[in-house]
Each structure stands twice: as C-alpha cells, then as structure tokens.
C-alpha cells in the first residue's frame, strides 16, 4: 500500500485537521472531530446535515458552507458515522427551523441517521438518496446506492434552504431531484482502504468493473477494458433508459472522477458523453467535471445525469461558497 500517511489510525484525524485549517474561513471542526460545520449559522434556516463514511472527499465536508450544507459528519473510512456525531452536529447548527438529514442509501448510514433522528429533540426529516442505476431497483431489497448524484441534491437543496424554504418543502424538493438523477460508475483499478492495507478487489490488466460502487463494491459485471466511447455509451444508455429521457430534455452532466483518474481523462469523458447525448437530442444545459465523490485512490469515473427544470437550473446556478464548490461569490 502506497499512501501519503503516517499511521493508519491517524489518517482520518490528520486529514480532517488539514482540511479544517485550510478552510478555516468557511468551516470549523466540532469537538472530537465529530462533525465539520459552517462558521456562520443563520437563525430561521433549516439545518442541512449530511455525512457518511470517509474516503469520498471532498464529499461531504467539502460541501459545507454558504448555499450547501450546514454540517457534515465524517465516519471512519467507508463506514457510516455514529448517531452521536449527527446529534452533536444538529445541536451545533440548529437554526430553529428543523433539521434535514441527507443520507446516501446504505443500510449503515440509514440506520445510524435513523437512530440519531429518534434521539433528537427538534423536528428532523431524512432524505434518502439512491441514484445508482448499476444496482437493480426493487422495493423488497436494500434498493439502490447513493453515489455521485448526492452532490447535485446537496447543491440544489442547499440553495433552496439558503433562500429560506421550510423543512417539508426541502424534503420534497430533495426527493424530486433524487428521482430525476441517475449515475453509473466504472472502475479501472481497485481502491485500498488504509486499515485493510491491500486492494479491496483485483482486476486484470485488461479488465474493468462496470457498475462499481463508491466503496469498490463489485458492480454489474467484470468485463474487458473498453474504449471511452463504449463506456460512455453503456453508462448513458442505462441512465437515459432508467430516467425515460426523451429528446429535447435539458440535463446536468456530471463527470466524476473516483480519485485515481486525472482531469485529462475526465474531460475526455465529458466530450464523449456530450457527443453521445447530442446524438439523442438531449441537451447538456449545465455540467461539472472533477473528482468530487471519490473512492480513495480508485481509478475510474462515474457519469451522472440530472434532469433540469427552470427551478433546478436557478438553484444550481445560485451562489455557493464551500471548500470544494464555489461560484457566484
């Protein structure tokens, strides 16, 4: 295992300390590093709190700040945070208008956030995100995973919270954006969890994992390494089919790197995805390219499409000032 770290047990703490020090103008770190919160809490605003296992940086702490989250709770690497973290965060950023938990659909996350919600004093709602089309959907299983689409929900709901929307409206908005957002990923190499010390899975020199999850979970199938065009086609085909997109729809196209893939390849995928969507008459009205929802050092990427109406577009464009996303201010 080759990583820029000291001891395996210090990785999370030292990384959080560096993050908090580097962005001290925007965030502060809670006691015992239970959460990262905004410096400024706005009275009367619904508090948006997310969190999840670490190893997906900049998700979620990188999205704490004006126009997005109020706090983020970092769990151990790939492990949901514990309820005391969410409770401490909720107390710290309470604006008197209730709390919305934004939770990726993994049972660990769902259960830990649920326990925190049960123990909370004020009004709490939870929004469960499940944008990964690689997993077959069904009501009697765990369902789909929450992956890169999370960023889009956090941005759009964050902008709505900033303008003063109430708890019920924010939950409804988030659910709608989630239902209009789909992602699929591909891994070219495995990630290595620091504490495990060796790769989570192994791929041959000519193989890729299509439909991989953001924890290096196996995907739909292991196949021969394909061209960027073939990869884009398979992923977008699944997404467009699942969203039942018709031509002339406007979408946000998000090309997300998993941590080990450089920007050059991500922009190439942005190009190939656009060309494919063009061919279907689907209009890319907004886009984002970069490694925002990562899986440690895994090489690969995910593509996400989110259907945009005028409201979603305006909320996406609204000013945001966080460590990882910043525009309009």
């Amino acid at each position: 295992m080759k990583k820029l770290i000291n001891a395996v047990d210090d990785v999370l703490a030292q990384s959080l300390d560096g993050f908090a020090a580097a962005h001290a103008d925007i965030v502060t770190l809670g006691e015992e590093r239970k959460f990262v919160r905004r410096r400024q809490v706005k009275p009367g605003k619904v508090a948006l709190i997310s969190g999840g296992g670490s190893g997906h940086e900049p998700l979620h702490a990188g999205f704490v700040g004006f126009g997005m989250l109020d706090a983020a709770c970092p769990g151990q690497v790939f492990t949901s945070p514990t309820p005391d973290q969410m409770m401490a965060a909720a107390e710290a950023v309470d604006g008197g208008a209730g709390t919305l938990y934004i939770v990726k659909n993994y049972e660990g996350d769902v259960m830990n956030f649920a326990m925190a919600a049960e123990m909370a004093s004020g009004p709490v709602e939870s929004l469960i995100l499940d944008d990964d089309v690689a997993v077959e959907n069904s009501t009697w299983t765990t369902g789909r995973r929450g992956v890169a689409g999370t960023l889009i929900v956090e941005k759009i709901v964050g902008a709505a919270a900033e303008r003063g929307d109430d708890l019920a409206s924010l939950k409804a908005l988030g659910a709608r954006v989630n239902s209009h957002t789909r992602s699929m990923g591909v891994a070219l190499t495995s990630c290595t969890v620091p504490a495990a010390g060796k790769p989570t899975f192994s791929l041959g020199e000519d193989e890729m994992e299509m439909g991989v999850g953001i924890h290096g979970e196996p995907g739909r199938r292991r196949v021969k390494l394909a061209s960027a065009d073939a990869i884009a086609e398979e992923m977008l085909g699944a997404i467009v089919g699942d969203l039942s997109l018709t031509s002339a729809t406007e979408v946000l196209l998000f090309v997300n790197g998993f941590g080990g893939t450089p920007l050059m390849e991500l922009y190439l995928m942005q190009d190939r995805a656009r060309k494919w969507l063009d061919g279907k008459g689907i209009k890319v009205a907004r886009s984002l390219t970069g490694s925002y929802v990562t899986s440690l050092d895994m090489a690969g990427c995910s593509l996400t499409l989110s259907v945009l109406d005028e409201q979603a577009k305006a909320l996406w464009d609204a000013p945001v000032h966080t460590p990882a996303l910043r525009w309009g201010m």
């Binding site: 296992g53 945070p81 514990t82 660990g108 259960m111």
Partner: peptide
C-alpha cells in the same frame, strides 16, 4: 457499540 462502530453493524 452504537456510538463507536458506525456502519450497519453498529446499530444492529
């Protein structure tokens, strides 16, 4: 366990 484990196994 709930406050230290996290993941699915902590709550369970």
């Amino acid at each position: 366990m709930v406050m230290k484990v996290g993941g699915a196994s902590g709550p369970l």
